[in-house]
Amino acid sequence: MGFKLLSKLLVYLTASIMAIASPLAFSVDSSGEYPTVSEIPVGEVRLYQIADGVWSHIATQSFDGAVYPSNGLIVRDGDELLLIDTAWGAKNTAALLAEIEKQIGLPVTRAVSTHFHDDRVGGVDVLRAAGVATYASPSTRRLAEVEGNEIPTHSLEGLSSSGDAVRFGPVELFYPGAAHSTDNLIVYVPSASVLYGGCAIYELSRTSAGNVADADLAEWPTSIERIQQHYPEAQFVIPGHGLPGGLDLLKHTTNVVKAHTNRSVVE
């Protein structure tokens, strides 16, 4: 069995187990497998329904001669939608809004960016022009300005110390501490036991640490421990890039980060 097929099978099995364990909360999309990078042309966006009122959005972007996937989250909030992270750029984010209108038909009224990198804030200006209120932590807003990236308009308070959590509509926002970046936030959907790890969490097929220019490698494993301790009931975990899975993604990420750190020390 090929690795790609095995990865998709694991996603399907995880979703099936969740649907059985929580039949009222989960209505997993039966329309197909989780979209992969090879299936999404740059400039297009796919939506994948995880649970009743919960979707991931998947886009792709060219970077350094390669094409990478990027995940975000959409959560229903009454007759409105909360968006977590842009679709990595203005063109993708405009396509995301169009796809949401086509498939869901509810307005996106608020959006949260989970850290300051372009795959999370690139497209904020498109959201703002569409009347979406954009939010991020003060740290993310400051770092985005320093980096020359787009800056969300509103500040999220109460997320300055490791372990801080605040309720934001249908989700809980959690600051686990520094990891992929010093400002990275985690998003949890309690009604569906869905954990969105953003770039602080890796997919299972990833074996290298990737972009760690703004990471705190020493603190990252401790931050992941905080996530595990705060959300032990999480059933569906979405990484910032690639295929979702279960809580095993947290341990896998820790292993990859520690291996990278150990290699760096040896070198």
Rank of each mutant, 00 (worst) to 15 (best):
E99I: 13
V257R: 02
L82G: 01
D214L: 06
Y34C: 06
V171W: 03
V28F: 05
L96I: 05
E157D: 14
W88V: 02
I100G: 02
L81F: 02
V237H: 01
L243Y: 15
P107F: 07
K258V: 12
A178E: 08
R226K: 08
S155D: 12
I58Y: 15
K8G: 07
D119I: 01
V75W: 01
A90M: 11
L106Q: 14
R206M: 15
G123N: 05
E147Y: 15
P170C: 06
G53C: 05
V189W: 01
P69L: 15
F116Q: 02
D164C: 04
T134S: 08
T254V: 13
Y34M: 15
N149C: 06
S191Y: 12
H57V: 01
I100V: 11
T60G: 14
E99Y: 12
I104T: 05
D164W: 07
D29H: 09
L217I: 10
F3W: 06
M1Q: 03
Y188N: 04
G72N: 02
L106A: 12
Y135H: 08
A66S: 12
T261W: 09
T134L: 01
F63W: 07
D77H: 09
E172N: 04
D52I: 08
A19T: 15
S208E: 12
G105D: 09
K8S: 09
R120L: 01
S161R: 14
A179W: 04
V132Q: 01
L6S: 14
R76Q: 11
E267M: 11
L82Y: 06
M18G: 14
V187L: 05
N92R: 04
I151V: 10
N211M: 10
V42A: 15
K91V: 15
T114Q: 00
F168K: 03
R120C: 04
I224A: 02
S155Q: 14
G148A: 09
L159G: 02
R263L: 14
H252W: 05
S205W: 09
S62P: 07
M18Q: 15
S62V: 05
A94P: 04
E101Y: 11
A59E: 08
I238T: 03
S223N: 01
S56P: 09
R167Y: 11
T207V: 13
A111G: 08
S137M: 14
H154C: 06
F3E: 06
G169V: 05
V187D: 04
D77Y: 07
A59P: 05
T222L: 11
T93K: 00
T60R: 07
Y202W: 06
D77P: 01
F63R: 06
P176G: 03
A133G: 10
S30N: 14
